[in-house]
């Protein structure tokens, strides 16, 4: 079967965009779990938060910045409002760019706030209580998003301004590029964070909370810092994914936005950013291939292929946990250069 060239390009853009978004999420998870030891089973909360707040605010802000005068509600009547906004944005790349930055800032801030709300009740408690609380709180975001109509217009969702419209036929390419840039920055930031005193403190707390506390390191403060950083990244991921699709509905699920990122990190190796990169690439590729070849599967299966996804991923996780809990690219201890030199000298002496 010969694939037309632009279909391959489309497939690649789609793959890279999803990969980028998931990479931001897995990096965030790595900071929260890998670095600070927080069992973040409610990742979805900040991601959905970023996405939904973008859905709610994006058009409103665009209307305000472009100076459009209208009485229409930017959420309920989004189609009508956007028919005024989008043509203007298509000719103003600079304004679009500023808008993207504003949206990202809002997504990050809102995500961080949600993260704090989510962790607050259990921030002093043990790992198991913390995990339950994080998971339970994440479950309410869709309750609110569906019930509170002014947020996303209810269950049907809302459209957002087409901030990449100015690129014409290359809009998805540009959108993907934007996602990859943020993902790359997140990755480098996480690598940098590990080597800072803050990163080392977080690791110390992860390894032994009591010992770290006895050194005067406040468990609450550092957990909060890790949650804020991680949730801000998640919020941005939600924003980017919404801007990419130009549409958002209150349908972010635990499976896709909590469980899958966990699986990616587990496969790669908890605490290792290279591992997160590898795990994310593998799972997004798998997912895309399954969707792409879905129709060929469907002929054999008496049920929806998507359920096969759930069954297989559930089994794969259990297998990883039992047979390779350290992941494919496990975390390596980071030893600062000067100390490494001293150790090497000592070894030479013997």
């Amino acid at each position: 079967m010969q694939l037309p060239l632009n279909e391959i390009a489309l497939f690649m853009t789609d793959f890279l965009a999803l990969f980028g978004v998931y990479l931001i999420v897995t990096i965030s998870l790595n900071i929260q779990r890998g670095l600070a030891g927080i069992p973040q089973f409610g990742l979805m909360f900040a991601i959905a938060g970023g996405a939904y707040i973008t859905g709610n605010m994006a058009t409103r802000i665009a209307v305000w910045i472009l100076g459009i005068k209208t009485d229409l509600d930017p959420v309920i009547d989004c189609t009508a409002v956007l028919s005024m906004v989008n043509p203007m944005l298509n000719t103003q790349p600079m304004t679009s760019f500023i808008l993207i930055l504003i949206y990202l800032a809002i997504g990050a801030t809102f995500g961080a706030v949600l993260g704090l709300i989510q962790v607050a009740p259990a921030i002093r408690l043990r790992e198991d209580y913390l995990a339950i609380t994080l998971l339970a709180f994440a479950e309410i975001i869709n309750v609110i998003a569906t019930a509170y109509k002014p947020l996303l217009g209810g269950a049907f969702g809302v459209q957002v301004p087409s901030v990449y419209g100015w690129a014409g036929g290359y809009r998805y390419g540009v959108a993907t590029l934007a996602i990859l840039v943020i993902a790359a920055i997140s990755y480098l930031y996480a690598e940098y964070l590990e080597r800072t005193p803050l990163g080392r403190t977080l690791k110390a707390i992860r390894e032994n909370e009591v010992a770290a506390a006895s050194l005067g390191k406040s468990l609450v403060k550092y957990r909060a810092i890790a949650i804020v950083i991680g949730s801000a990244l998640c919020g941005m991921a939600g924003t980017l994914w919404t801007l990419y699709g130009e549409y958002v509905t209150p349908t972010y699920t635990r499976f896709y936005w909590t469980f899958l990122p966990w699986l990616m990190v587990l496969l790669g190796g908890i605490g290792s950013n290279r591992g997160a990169l590898l795990g994310t690439a593998i799972f997004v590729a798998l997912d895309k291939l399954i969707i792409y070849y879905k129709h060929s599967f469907e002929a054999f299966l008496p049920f929806d292929v998507v359920w096969l996804d759930y069954i297989l991923l559930g089994i794969i996780t259990a297998i990883i946990l039992i047979y390779r809990p350290q992941g494919l690219l496990p975390e390596r201890p980071y030893i600062p250069k000067d100390i490494r030199k001293r150790i090497e000298e000592k070894i030479k002496q013997f």
Partner: peptide, 12 residues
């Protein structure tokens, strides 16, 4: 995580 993954499996 193991109980979470088993849940996903059963859900499927």
């Amino acid at each position: 995580i193991a109980t979470l993954s088993y849940d996903i499996l059963l859900y499927g």
